[in-house]
């Protein structure tokens, strides 16, 4: 007999669950529906239209922001996946004072409010005389993505058998050979999952980006934010948001497939 059968109808928790589902999906659902609604404020249904998407397609600033977002995300993903995997490897393999420090500087950023990182980086870039723009946004993205990748890969490495490495070394393999032919193939699925996660985080980040971006660094979320301040753009942001929802969901589902640990 299943647990559910024994419990006398958990109606209260079911009610809360349904309420929570409604709460979670209603605003997003209305937004998606309204992106096809001819009505400007979405108060009522005025007929189906693709006009807002058409308008979006003609908006060059948005397209430029999209290009920026993808460029930054791709570069940040590549750099942070490499740096983060290496960092996780060190944290897993060595036990020393150096690694204690290493652990603190890669974990602390995940534990503090992101606005704090944004402010600290902006002030640092200003003091260093570094113009806010594409470069500063990229550096910031690599930083927080690196921390997430490290945390994820440390988790993945828990199941890694170090004897594999020792055995290979005993049999005469050099360090490069071990890294490329033993470690990399085992870690690759985890690295792909971590990379996808870094990609989503980079595409999605608003607060840190907002604080360190100048003229050349506007990403899509920054664009949405700027547009959202004036309500006349509302339906166009609905359309842009719908595309963003679909894109992040697809990437997340893809990552979910890789993230599932293989049953060893």
């Amino acid at each position: 007999m299943s647990m559910a059968g024994k419990v006398r109808r958990p109606w209260f928790s079911r009610l809360v669950f349904l309420g929570v589902l409604l709460f979670l999906y209603l605003p997003l659902g209305v937004l998606v529906v309204n992106s096809f609604n001819a009505s400007k404020y979405g108060g009522r249904w005025d007929g189906f239209t693709l006009g807002w998407y058409e308008k979006l397609r003609q908006d060059e600033a948005t397209l430029a922001a999209l290009g920026n977002t993808l460029k930054i995300a791709a570069l940040a993903t590549g750099a942070s996946t490499l740096l983060g995997t290496l960092a996780a490897w060190c944290l897993h393999r060595y036990r020393s004072r150096l690694q204690s420090l290493h652990l603190v500087v890669t974990e602390l950023p995940l534990a503090v409010p992101d606005i704090w990182i944004g402010v600290a980086l902006q002030l640092f870039f200003i003091q260093a005389g570094w113009d806010l723009g594409f470069g500063t946004v990229l550096a910031a993205h690599v930083t927080f993505c690196l921390c997430y990748v490290t945390a994820l890969m440390v988790g993945r490495l828990q199941g890694f058998d170090m004897q594999l490495v020792d055995a290979a070394r005993d049999l005469g393999a050099g360090p490069v050979q071990v890294a490329l032919r033993i470690v990399l193939p085992v870690l690759l699925p985890g690295m792909i999952a971590a990379g996808l996660m870094a990609f989503i985080l980079s595409v999605d980040d608003f607060v840190i980006t907002f604080f360190v971006s100048g003229p050349g660094g506007a990403t899509l979320p920054a664009k949405v934010y700027a547009m959202a301040r004036t309500s006349r753009n509302m339906p166009v942001i609905n359309a842009l948001s719908t595309i963003l929802i679909l894109a992040t969901l697809l990437t997340a589902l893809l990552g979910h497939r890789f993230l599932k640990p293989k049953s060893a």
């Binding site: 605003p27 997003l28 937004l31 595409v203 949405v224 609905n238 948001s241 992040t248």
Partner: peptide
């Protein structure tokens, strides 16, 4: 929903 854009989720309430 957590995997959809944070900003979009906040914006959806503003629109609603």
């Amino acid at each position: 929903p957590f995997w959809t854009s944070f900003l979009v989720r906040v914006f959806s309430w503003r629109a609603l």
